[in-house]
């Protein structure tokens, strides 16, 4: 299949590379195919008097096995606040994540736990949220997501739908939020956003009228820490809709919702 010597060499070296690369990865543990390899098992030694293994990830599931002090267990995976472990003889079950603080890693140090509760609130990065409210007389529903890239600043986007008897609106914004006192339990915020609004006005007589306009957002409100990974959110939004008519439209919105942060 090769038409010249150079091409032949090229094919040969390519074939060699393809054949050789898995071998090379097999020999040395560091390689670009590393993520395909099974990671080393996370083995810890129980340092508490005993560890209770439940059949499921929750306090409502029954305890069915006990691991004694000094036994070696393998950590498999985590769901919410529960960790699935495998005991010496192969039994698998779920333990509460905080009990990992009473196990020792191969370096004889307790497993380092992530922050939780108020500490987690202090260290929050990502948030997802929903809110319901009144958008100039229409019922509105908003979905948020945000990333806190600096202590005081969060960038994110929101999508929103507002429905009333006379109009349906869909809004999407890119927004930046500033929290002057992010460590306060009740923390005020100021927000600016830019996006688009798509409105469909309807009445019994007229044909529906579709318009798409750019829109600017000024928002202010408070975030309040509710506990665990929840944050309440009460806010006032001022939407400036840049219409193609002579006058811009302005819509006021009040809404209440909650965020989950992680």
């Amino acid at each position: 299949m090769c038409f010249s010597v150079t091409q032949c060499r090229l094919w040969a070296s390519l074939a060699l590379l393809i054949v050789a690369s898995p071998l090379a990865v097999g020999e040395t543990t560091t390689g670009w195919l590393d993520w395909l390899a099974e990671p080393a098992p996370l083995e810890v030694t129980v340092d508490d008097a005993y560890l209770e293994m439940r059949t499921g990830p929750g306090r409502g599931y029954p305890v069915y096995h006990i691991v004694e002090k000094g036994e070696l267990v393998t950590l498999l995976k985590k769901r919410t606040d529960w960790v699935k472990i495998q005991a010496k003889r192969g039994q698998q079950g779920w333990v509460y994540r905080k009990s990992l603080a009473l196990t020792l890693g191969p370096d004889q140090q307790p497993v380092t736990l992530n922050a939780d509760g108020r500490d987690q609130y202090e260290q929050r990065d990502w948030e997802l949220g929903v809110a319901m409210g009144d958008f100039g007389g229409a019922d509105s529903l908003t979905f948020y997501s945000g990333y806190r890239f600096a202590t005081n600043l969060t960038a994110g986007f929101s999508v929103q739908q507002a429905t009333s008897r006379v109009a349906d609106s869909k809004l999407a914004y890119i927004r930046v939020q500033h929290q002057p006192w992010p460590h306060w339990r009740v923390s005020p915020f100021f927000e600016l956003g830019a996006g688009v609004i798509q409105s469909k006005k309807r009445s019994a007589l007229d044909q529906p009228l579709d318009t798409t306009s750019n829109s600017l957002l000024i928002a202010t409100g408070i975030n309040f820490y509710l506990g665990r990974r929840f944050n309440g959110r009460l806010e006032y939004n001022n939407h400036k809709i840049l219409t193609s008519r002579d006058e811009n439209e302005e819509v006021n919105e009040w809404k209440l919702g909650f965020n989950v942060f992680f």
Partner: peptide
């Protein structure tokens, strides 16, 4: 012949 590594909660695969 043992790896003396430290284990952190973050190393666990989450399934939320």
């Amino acid at each position: 012949d043992m790896e003396r590594r430290h284990i952190e909660e973050d190393q666990l695969d989450t399934e939320d």
